[in-house]
Design a protein around this nucleic acid. Structure first.
Lengths: 250, 250
DNA sequence: CGCGCCCTTGACCGGATTCAATATGCGTGG
DNA sequence: CCACGCATATTGAATCCGGTCAAGGGCGCG
């Protein structure tokens, strides 16, 4: 179980190619750090730590539970699923990570990854060596604040799973969540792909796959959305918002 | 909403009375710090920060959501309920805090308490000024470690609410949890009081109050326990353990 | 073409909620 | 002391939501 995480196929480091800096500025991570008021010199320090890795193809593991924790990574393209397997062999999906989002943060208090991360489609990553970034964080309050914020945001997202919400509420909250996160990165908020299979959505929402199917069909009958296989279009945001409100608020 | 938290009625500071030090060493907090290997001098520093406050009577608020975060506190006697009220006015019980346990920790990343804390019976507290304790923590790694450990423990306890456990499993896990926590402070693990009303238990476990009643009655019929009003006796720990196992493990 | 995977759909079942009625304690005031 | 009122608990009956089981459909790929 001590295989190296983030295998380095096709990696290109920033040091090799100045153009990469501009390209990597699409990373949510760097952007957020700038929003936090980090100056350009600090941002330069940060970018030196970056490696671009990938592509990973659907089904490929990015890291596995128990792998030594060496780096966090920002998703540049594609979708990453994180999950754990309990002692009975059942998978529990922890979350989906869209372009611009960071994986590996929940390993921050240990020296091993506490979950699996697997690509759902073709995934490109920006890899940040964690030892280096944490040293840097001691010098840069803005960076540290950003790390803590990302951490607490992940924790807060668990509200979707806690609470005894109905299948409709869970599904509405999930779809709106994906929509908003995509919109925050410049993608269309109303038309997008569900890159994960129904079974993963169901597992994540703690529903049966059949229930996911039925809820989506009913939402479509009621004119809330249009869905065909993994293609999705949100038609009535207000209605979905109303459903999801108690889940997402407070 | 800017009323002062932890009103100081009946408070006696350590500085006023040397005897209080011995008494307060019953606080879980200090004990845990000693377990962490803190030396006596450091423990002395810690005890100087302590104020004994109380009593609070059943129904009295210890702090309210939005109050400025000034202190954490260890419960010396009684039970404290923490909860939030959503925008629809519905209460959500976050947890119950038994003697030896710490309240206020979840305010640690903000400057306001994020929840209400209310006494369920007659409550006595040890109050620790947070600004002072956090300064102290920078000097004492053992103290800092203890703070983080308490934090993560609280987060982990949410496992009881997540997951789609049956009413029986939730109830068994809840009862065993209370039993173990009481036992850890020297109380009888098999005979104790449920100091909270059924509605609060139900709310916490996300069940209907009627379901709580029925499950307890059935547990009694099956010989797992004896319950009369709020008096409880666990009779078949093994059976309860078996029920609670999947909830508490992993 | 045929196999496998993912998704859908229907019928049925069961656990938990909901609604409604009743019981039990406890404090208050007559 | 008892009567009363209120909050808390219990119990029963009806209902509903979501899970399970089983079958069938669409699509990609060898």
């Amino acid at each position: 179980m001590s295989r190296a995480a983030f295998p380095r196929q096709d990696q290109r480091t920033l040091a090799d190619d100045g153009n990469e800096l501009r390209f990597c500025s699409t990373c949510a991570f760097s952007q957020a750090c700038m929003d936090e008021g980090m100056d350009k010199a600090s941002l330069g320090d940060l970018h030196v730590l970056v490696e671009h890795v990938g592509p990973f193809h659907a089904g490929e593991y990015i890291f596995r539970e128990g792998d030594p924790f060496e780096a966090i990574a920002a998703v540049r393209a594609g979708t990453v699923k994180t999950s754990v397997v309990d002692r009975d062999g059942h998978e529990h999906v922890l979350g989906f990570h869209l372009p611009g989002e960071v994986i590996g943060l929940n390993a921050i208090d240990g020296d091993r990854y506490p979950c699996d991360a697997v690509a759902l489609d073709t995934v490109m990553l920006c890899r940040f060596s964690f030892p280096k970034i944490s040293v840097l964080a001691t010098r840069l309050p803005g960076l540290q604040r950003q790390l803590f914020r990302l951490l607490s945001r992940d924790i807060g997202r668990a509200a979707l799973l806690a609470g005894d919400w109905s299948a409709d509420q869970r599904m509405a909250a999930f779809l709106l969540g994906v929509s908003r996160r995509l919109a925050a990165r410049g993608f269309s908020p109303n038309r997008f792909q569900l890159t994960m299979p129904r079974t993963d959505i169901a597992n994540y929402l703690r529903l049966a796959p059949e229930t996911v199917s039925r809820v989506l069909r009913r939402f479509q009958e009621e004119g809330l959305l249009r869905v065909e296989r993994r293609e999705l279009e949100l038609l009535d945001r207000d209605a979905l918002d109303a459903l999801a409100a108690p889940v997402l608020r407070d």
